[in-house]
Design a binder for these strands. Structure first.
Lengths: 302, 302
DNA sequence: CGATGCGGTGCAAATCCGGCAACGCATGCC
DNA sequence: GGCATGCGTTGCCGGATTTGCACCGCATCG
């Protein structure tokens, strides 16, 4: 949108922390950028940046203006989406910030299902841990978030939430696989592989272990849930994941057993968006579909 | 604001109903205007106007866009006001739509009082009857409205409301002036002067008269409350006005007597703004002052 | 104390945009 | 039926705005 170009530049400068860096990012010269910003500051009636010896930084007025711009841009996109919708085109773009657990099975299936009905809609999928997903929403960089056990924020509006008991991933022949439900103690006594600290599942495991005076001591600690799933079969260690990240009927090499609820708190899969925001048509409809799918998932297992 | 100029043009075209007329209004040529609009339509992805043989008209997409623009502009103004405020300048502009009764005494006093503290704030005062005042708010053309007995609208958010019994204005020596309270019947039996139909006071008088099978039959019917006030002394007829439109201690030529409440319903002076809107700082503070002044007025009399 | 990187500025080139005139078209009027 | 009027629209050109380049003053740092 052309009439918002100046704001895009302002945002770039704010992000880069210096006009010259921002100018390079935006493929214009520093002088052009500088003049645009000074020009706007004059028109606006107040400086937006503090000029420091090694760059610039937004002042309070600039922060306020950036807020204005971000909501303004978001509104404009929603408007375009609405207009495209009433023209019968059902076009649009959905940006979603989600936990890694959603990537292998749940989200691809859902996106495919949605795009089958509305091929004009495109997607951006960002992997964000719990805290950063909410920052994404707050700065309008994502429309919706789908995360496991997010940190609580007042600006987060929950659309749907379902429980997700933490599951142990076992190789098919593992002795513990005989039991229908596992104790955390048994898992910790065996070699195991766990996600690193920023993930929700690990957080719950750490809490539970500390409560019983133990520690999670994985042979491998990783940021990749995919690595966990695949490594379990190779060495015969125990992995952890929530159900939504597991294919209900694997090929027989792995089996999944829930951890006892009295040991490890049940995780929650939460779908939400920024409180008070009106989503673009496409994002709103996709969120509705996700909510229904979560509901079905929950009902199907409970 | 330069970056919103295209929207201003779009608004002008929507208002004029034709590009050539709008171009004349905005002091540019029709071709320039046309190109701006076509250019924006292309960038936006959808036409905004239906092209008719004798002009243009907004289509639904255009209506939506105009909404977006008006809130966007209003937000920008509020932002500038906020920034000026945090710079300690207390600048800004307040646009107020009000009933005629407020013009002679109440509003001038209030504005003077506010400007004494904040000389940087300027005012626009529009005279609007009850219905049009609310239309002004809805299209962001006024910040606040101060009207007598407004028609009810869901989008109107009441900040303060005080009762205003309808008063009769009598020449000092008038026989009816002996009574502390007048009956409507007595007034109608004497020659009287009344505001025309669109005004709140007249509306209440008409309702009351009809209830007792009478009619308001003024010797003069006028849109000017000032004329009413001044004419009463000249011919000795009875005029009508709400207290806020009357100077408490006149020079002795006139006296004011309330009409019996069982005859004529008490009017209401209402201060409000558009529901859900966040006012610019200056407008919000001025509205707060007005609210307090109304409160004091009410307490002082009751 | 030179090198580096910063924001800001003078000047010429390039780009954008507005005004003028004209076109195609529909309508209204003799 | 022709003529006039008013509408949106478009090619062309001149002027205003913006951009890129080179450069300045300044602060920091090795």
């Amino acid at each position: 949108m052309r009439h918002l170009y100046t704001f895009v530049l302002i945002e770039a400068v704010a992000r880069a922390g210096s006009m010259r860096k921002a100018a390079e990012d935006m493929n214009i010269t520093a002088s052009a950028l500088n003049r645009r910003i000074r020009g706007f500051e004059e028109e606006f009636g107040s400086p937006l940046f503090e000029r420091l010896p090694n760059g610039v930084r937004l002042n309070p007025a600039g922060e306020l203006l950036l807020d204005y711009f971000r909501t303004s841009r978001s509104d404009m996109q929603r408007l375009q989406s609405q207009v495209a919708d009433l023209a019968g085109e059902r076009r649009g773009h959905v940006t979603i910030a989600c936990s890694q657990a959603l990537l292998p099975y749940f989200l691809p299936a859902q996106i495919a299902r949605y795009r089958k009905e509305h091929p004009g809609v495109t997607f951006t999928v960002k992997i964000r841990d719990r805290a950063r997903a909410e920052a994404e929403l707050a700065s309008f960089q994502s429309d919706i978030a789908l995360v496991v056990e997010p940190v609580y924020m007042v600006e987060f509006e929950v659309l749907q939430a379902i429980p997700q008991p933490v599951m142990a991933i076992l190789p098919a022949g593992h002795p513990l696989a005989a039991k229908p439900e596992l104790r955390l103690r048994d898992c910790l006594d065996n070699p195991h592989i766990a996600p690193s600290a920023q993930y929700g599942v690990r957080h719950l495991l750490d809490l539970a272990a500390r409560r019983m005076g133990r520690k999670v001591a994985p042979v491998i600690e990783t940021e990749s849930f995919e690595l966990i799933r695949h490594y379990v079969a190779h060495e015969g260690v125990i992995g952890f994941q929530v159900p939504v990240g597991l294919q209900p009927d694997a090929d027989g090499a792995l089996c999944f057993r829930p951890l006892a609820e009295r040991d490890v708190a049940v995780a929650t899969l939460i779908l939400g968006h920024l409180r008070g925001r009106t989503l673009p048509v496409a994002a709103a409809r996709f969120a509705m579909q996700l909510g229904a799918a979560m509901e079905a998932l929950h009902a199907g297992r409970g």
